[in-house]
């Protein structure tokens, strides 16, 4: 099929030989126009919020539709210093960058153990993990809160890390086990025959081969944890993550919208920048996340 005619592939229209190319071009133009419209709808709110984060309060009322009259970088410095955004960002970073390696490590080990050795309960344990996919956080949140209170983990990083890790496991184990199943087992076998121990064979042979799946698990959990709100709001209001922090901004600055949007951008931009750098991996990781359920 030539590139020229691909544009009409899926467009409901009778195929008439005469004037086809003109019609095809027109149809293609209309499709492009509609797609551009959709892209504008997708991106405009983010762009507007980005611009708003540089506006002064006066600008918001005097000139609601235009660009900032003067670019107030000070919005960012103020919100960073006054509204504790710096400490929220630290909390988010600590929680995310400890939970994600833990999930990756534990799920990789478990996925390997469940698929590469056929033991009596391997299937049962696999299904046991799958059951966790159906449990909504709204069901477990209050007993979890009690548990965390007993362990003195409320309002601590360790508490959030523990729960995010546990909640990330079912789906990550599912992904890792799926990936390991499709991987040839002979290599680890060979390493073992060469006298490497079980863990050695796992670390030297299996882990490098699973890199794509590890990346998927890391990105999916990283974005999920960085963006998580419900659990952080309930378990850790005293050590707020960025999402809880920016939700509090409304109380902190009742109408200083420039500051509020600067805070929102601090929460959103790291993920957006990472997405721009690693678009393909992000789309793969987060689409895998949609299978959750």
């Amino acid at each position: 099929m030539t590139t020229g005619s691909i544009g009409v592939e899926t467009i409901p229209q009778p195929q008439k030989r005469a004037g086809r190319s003109v019609k095809a071009t027109l149809v293609r133009l209309v499709i492009h126009a509609l797609l551009i419209l959709a892209v504008i709808f997708a991106l405009l709110p983010v762009v507007l919020a980005f611009l708003a984060s540089f506006k002064s309060l006066f600008d918001f009322y005097d000139n609601p539709l235009g660009l900032p009259a003067t670019w107030e970088w000070q919005n960012y410095t103020s919100v960073w210093r006054e509204a504790h955004i710096a400490s929220y960002a630290r909390n988010s970073a600590i929680v995310t960058f400890i939970s994600v390696p833990l999930i990756v490590m534990l799920s990789c080990l478990a996925g390997y153990g469940l698929t590469r050795y056929h033991f009596r309960f391997s299937r049962t344990i696999y299904l046991y993990f799958l059951a966790g996919l159906l449990i909504p956080i709204q069901l477990t949140i209050l007993p979890s809160l009690l548990q965390m209170k007993a362990l003195y983990l409320v309002n601590t990083h360790a508490g959030l890390i523990t729960l995010y890790t546990a909640l990330g496991l079912p789906f990550s184990v599912f992904l890792m086990a799926g990936f390991m199943n499709s991987m040839p087992g002979e290599l680890a076998e060979a390493a073992r025959l060469d006298g490497a121990g079980e863990l050695r064979a796992f670390w030297d042979v299996v882990v490098p081969l699973t890199k794509p799946a590890l990346a998927t698990v890391a990105i999916l959990n990283g974005v999920t944890i960085w963006n998580e709100f419900f659990l952080a709001l309930i378990l850790s209001p005293g050590t707020p993550t960025l999402q809880v922090g920016i939700n509090n901004l409304r109380g902190y600055y009742s109408t200083e919208w420039g500051y509020i949007f600067a805070g929102v951008m601090v929460a959103a931009l790291p993920v957006i920048l990472a997405y721009i750098l690693l678009t393909k991996q992000f789309i793969r990781g987060l689409t895998a996340g949609a299978l959750k359920g």
Binding site: P45, V46, A268, V271
Partner: peptide, 15 residues
């Protein structure tokens, strides 16, 4: 078109 997926829901609501 996929970009909004990675924006947190709290940020979305503010935006």
């Amino acid at each position: 078109l996929f970009l909004p997926v990675i924006v947190s829901l709290v940020a979305t609501a503010y935006i």
